[in-house]
């Protein structure tokens, strides 16, 4: 909560690793290099780097990404 009474909400890319097929295409399109592929676990998003631009959402062939509020 900032002084003016506005709550600052950060948006971030979230991945559903149940849907993810571990192809890694998103890693190559992420402009800020915030995605990491693990062949078993799936995709991890570095929330500190993510700018919620949504390019991963547009790319993902199976729709595993969404832009949501940061936890």
């Amino acid at each position: 909560m900032c002084r003016a009474g506005f709550k600052v909400i950060f948006m971030v890319s979230k991945v559903d690793n149940e849907k993810c097929l571990r192809c890694g295409g998103c890693v190559s399109v992420c402009p800020v290099d915030c995605l990491l592929l693990d062949e078993v676990e799936g995709i991890a998003v570095d929330a500190k780097k993510c700018t919620s631009c949504g390019i991963c959402v547009d790319f993902c062939p199976v729709g595993a990404f969404s832009i949501k509020k940061e936890d």
Binding site: S28, P61, V62
Partner: peptide, 12 residues
């Protein structure tokens, strides 16, 4: 070697 979004196709 980063890909521009328009230069990468989505395959399934």
């Amino acid at each position: 070697t980063k890909n521009r979004a328009q230069d990468i196709d989505s395959g399934f």
